[in-house]
């Protein structure tokens, strides 16, 4: 068992569950200095088949670069003139020791003050940010609704953008073509299908983005407060649609400052602060503690 390399699909199934296994993970040589890191797996208490997202001892070190325009010229000059480059980069841990298992059917909210690491955690689960240490397991198609219209190209028609976005979410051309009518139907934009996206109004753009993101039937839905714009009728319509998608998805993870939405939609809440999990449990209980802590009560 300790022959755990990068866990490819085949051996991912049985590694974590055998309990009390220590894996000695070392920084691969390509990434510079060797960092020792030990991941411990808890004994298999719960059925592993339920876990849809599992984060084990995830840590993410951020480097904030103060030289916003790194230049080869300066680097070369420093080298030639034997000056040492000013050490302007600060590193800090944006996430530290995150252990989180999300099981099938859960709707999880991430709460915390600004800078607590909520959105960063969401991006780690979406695999946009690669963690510095730890182990991440996901099961199923992930749809990040972190920003709307991520893969949109303004020069292309709405129809072609649907194909592009579908491909980004892992849908084949045929699958996406089959879903196209439903998207046009829901958005009511069918007459603009062959118009380049740059001529769409921002409302039309948003409707299309939302429709595509929700049409691909994600198994793991990651939402980052993107549900709050548009006219009233759209918000209402969007809310109904997203609830529908929530019901179909295996797991939903929401980042929101709107505690009303959190308590309405989420069964479980994870409270983050300074990159660590402070509390994790049923929404009413955690929200209660969180609100008291934030308001200083």
């Amino acid at each position: 068992m300790p022959t755990s390399n990068l866990q490819t699909n085949a051996d991912a199934a049985d590694s974590p569950a055998r309990g009390d296994v220590r894996i000695d993970a070392r920084e691969p040589k390509l990434h510079g200095p060797v960092v020792r890191h030990i991941a411990e797996f808890p004994a298999a208490g719960r059925s592993r088949d339920e876990a849809v997202v599992r984060l084990q001892n995830i840590g993410l070190k951020f480097t904030s670069y103060h030289d916003s325009h790194p230049s080869l010229k300066r680097a070369l000059l420093n080298l030639v003139l034997r000056r040492s480059a000013p050490a302007t980069n600060k590193t800090f841990w944006a996430l530290q020791g995150i252990d989180l298992t999300i099981r099938q059917g859960e709707r999880v909210a991430l709460v915390g003050t600004n800078g607590a690491g909520k959105s960063t955690l969401l991006k780690v689960i979406a695999r946009i940010y690669e963690p510095t240490v730890g182990r991440l397991t996901t099961r199923g198609r992930i749809a990040p609704m972190i920003e709307m219209g991520a893969g949109f190209h303004p020069e292309l028609t709405g129809r072609r953008n649907i194909q592009l976005n579908g491909a980004l979410m892992g849908m084949s051309r045929a699958e996406m073509t089959a879903r196209e009518p439903a998207i046009w139907d829901w958005t009511g934009l069918a007459e603009f299908a062959d118009l380049p996206l740059k001529y769409y109004s921002s409302g039309m753009f948003q409707r299309l983005a939302f429709a595509i993101a929700t049409e691909v039937e994600p198994e793991i839905l990651l939402v980052d407060e993107s549900l709050n714009a548009g006219d009233a009728s759209f918000v209402d319509k969007a809310k109904r649609r997203i609830l529908d998608v929530f019901d179909k998805a295996k797991a939903v993870i929401v980042v929101s400052h709107d505690l009303g939405i959190v308590s309405e939609l989420c069964t479980r809440t994870v409270w983050l602060d300074h990159g660590r999990i402070v509390a994790d449990g049923p929404t009413p209980e955690i929200l209660d503690r969180y609100v008291r802590a934030v308001t200083g009560g």
């Binding site: 390399n5 866990q7 996901t138 199923g140």
Partner: peptide, 10 residues
């Protein structure tokens, strides 16, 4: 399904 460990262990 995806499992990836960071840093990629040896």
């Amino acid at each position: 399904d995806e499992t990836a460990e960071f840093p990629a262990p040896l």
